[in-house]
């Protein structure tokens, strides 16, 4: 299995602040990788680095064997990196179908016309939004908007899908539906990197988990190993708690 995405010593500074610091991480083709960390750990910044919104200040990002450190967001999208947003961003004045068709055209490389619409409709069926295809995107509920984000992401024909807190704000039933969807997408061979706060989601989906803390990658490995890793516990719960844990265990 070759690495689809390779970050080597990636650093991103904002003024004096290092939001992402010296991160080296490799994501093999077909993996579902969870990216976790406390608030402000730099998870979204890392996604922004990969997609070219805030290019790395130092280090390299390679995707499918090519250097993409300096590409602009639209170029990253055309190369097959799709992302969803923490705060969903449909084009409010367009229909649901048009939103997805835009993704199919501009990132998926289809030309303007019926085929893009047909393909968009297929993706809408897949995420269960076919009935509202011709409604205005602004009229959707939050859960539907999140599914719209999935459909847009898929229409971009991604090799890598970056999911930024797709479950935030959803209720338990909606989260389960989203989980199903992510599994189905991964089953199509799309590599997924998922930023998530709900440990339940991460543990049930991911084959591997990477942990960011203060911009640094402090651990990466199998889910079980990660939740037992003292550094991770310390990052989430504080030093004193970690020491107490260590003491209690011997």
């Amino acid at each position: 299995m070759s690495a689809l995405l390779e970050l080597s010593s990636v650093t991103r500074r904002f003024g004096g602040l290092r939001a992402v610091s010296d991160v080296t991480l490799s994501v093999p083709q077909g993996e579902v990788l969870g990216l976790i960390g406390p608030n402000g750990a730099g998870k979204t910044t890392l996604v922004n680095v990969i997609t070219g919104v805030h290019p790395a200040s130092a280090g390299k990002v390679r995707f499918a064997g090519e250097d993409i450190t300096r590409v602009r967001p639209y170029q990253a999208a055309r190369r097959g990196i799709a992302r969803t947003f923490q705060i969903v961003q449909p084009f409010p004045g367009m229909t649901v179908l048009e939103n997805v068709a835009a993704a199919a055209m501009f990132a998926g490389g289809l030309s303007y016309g019926q085929r893009a619409r047909d393909e968009a409709l297929q993706h809408l069926r897949f995420v269960g939004l076919a009935e509202v295809a011709n409604s205005n995107a602004a009229a959707l509920t939050l859960a539907m908007r999140k599914r719209l984000e999935f459909a847009k992401g898929l229409a971009m024909r991604p090799k890598l899908l970056l999911l930024d807190e797709v479950n935030a704000g959803l209720n338990a039933a909606e989260v389960d539906q989203a989980l199903e969807l992510i599994r189905a997408i991964a089953a199509r061979g799309v590599t997924v990197l998922i930023i998530e706060h709900l440990m339940k989601v991460v543990l049930s989906l991911c084959s591997r988990i990477a942990v960011l803390h203060h911009g640094e990658l402090i651990a990466a490995g199998a889910p079980q190993a990660i939740i037992e890793d003292p550094r991770v516990i310390q990052a989430y719960l504080g030093k004193r708690y970690a020491r107490a844990q260590a003491g209690a265990h011997g």
């Binding site: 947003f85 961003q89 004045g93």
Partner: peptide
């Protein structure tokens, strides 16, 4: 039209 509605989202979607 995408740019008019939300330029950074359009960028993310592959619009140059």
């Amino acid at each position: 039209r995408c740019i008019q509605q939300n330029e950074s989202a359009a960028d993310m979607l592959g619009v140059d």
